[in-house]
């Protein structure tokens, strides 16, 4: 059993509104309420955007280890060896492992809360299904055209993912080695073909929708149902995110 997937599956049971607000609260907590420097804040913002996008695109084949909750540690701390830890002046110079470890502990001591909340936020983004998001948008009286655009974007990301898997297999099947110039040329062609195929398939997807009677109004069948468990979940998130903040000002 995959613990992370299981956790995400359980989160998926909560009402999308509870999940959404929990996501927003954690993001706010990470970005504004934590003792972070301005540069770190920007770093976390970018990290949050990247992780959310990857989670929604489900680009698991590239980042399958990163997209689990716990190995994110590696990703978050990836930049540390490149920083001026231990007095290195030249950007990009990698120090000995002991310095890296020291820097890592230092980093964790300061950033643990943010790291922890980022994990939660990431899991929330991953757990919200597109049907829940569509139901949520509908609940907020979002115009139908906007919901349709969201669905198209979602589908396009999916097609990007599926086509990338195919291109990767095709490259492997032809034994391409990027060290060789000819292979690099072929890989460039593959990339171009990849983009064209994504474009073409996205177009055909919309044709398939239209051929089955789609006129811009997405049929929404997912019912939002806020229950007691959602209230508990929501309160826990508020306590957790605000709790860190209170701890800080005390």
């Amino acid at each position: 059993m995959n613990l992370n997937r299981e956790t995400i599956f359980r989160l998926n049971k909560f009402d999308p509104r509870a999940q959404f607000f929990a996501g927003v609260l954690t993001a706010v907590s990470v970005l504004y309420l934590q003792p972070l420097e301005k540069a770190d804040r920007l770093y976390y913002l970018l990290l949050l955007i990247v992780l959310w996008s990857l989670a929604r695109a489900q680009l698991i084949f590239i980042f399958k280890d990163i997209l689990r909750v716990y190995p994110m540690l590696l990703f978050i701390t990836f930049h540390l060896p490149f920083q001026k830890l231990g007095g290195f002046e030249i950007f990009g110079q990698v120090g000995p492992f002991t310095l890296y470890r020291e820097g890592l502990w230092q980093f964790l001591a300061v950033h643990f809360k943010a790291f922890f909340l980022l994990n939660i936020s990431f899991a929330l983004s991953r757990s919200l299904s597109y049907k829940q998001i569509i139901a949520l948008l509908n609940n907020w009286r979002t115009p139908h055209w906007a919901i349709a655009i969201y669905f198209y974007l979602q589908r396009m990301l999916q097609v990007f993912n599926l086509e990338a898997i195919r291109v990767k297999l095709a490259l492997r099947a032809r034994n391409l080695r990027l060290r060789r110039a000819a292979s690099r040329h072929a890989a460039g062609n593959f990339l171009l073909m990849y983009l064209l195929r994504v474009w073409e398939r996205s177009g055909r997807s919309s044709e398939a929708m239209v051929s089955r009677g789609f006129t811009g109004r997405f049929p929404i069948v997912y019912k939002l149902n806020w229950c007691f468990a959602d209230t508990i979940f929501f309160l826990c998130t508020v306590l957790l995110t605000a709790g860190f903040w209170l701890w800080r000002i005390m």
């Binding site: 597109y130 049907k131 589908r155 999916q158 599926l162 398939r201 055909r204 997807s205 044709e207 398939a208 929708m209 089955r212 009677g213 789609f214 006129t215 049929p219 069948v221």
Partner: peptide
């Protein structure tokens, strides 16, 4: 090509798409 035709992530939703639009 069914890859062009199927756009929902679950079989039920995809088969139900047409009737729901009706």
């Amino acid at each position: 090509n069914p890859d062009d035709q199927l756009f929902m992530t679950e079989v039920f939703d995809d088969v139900a798409f047409g009737p729901r639009n009706q």
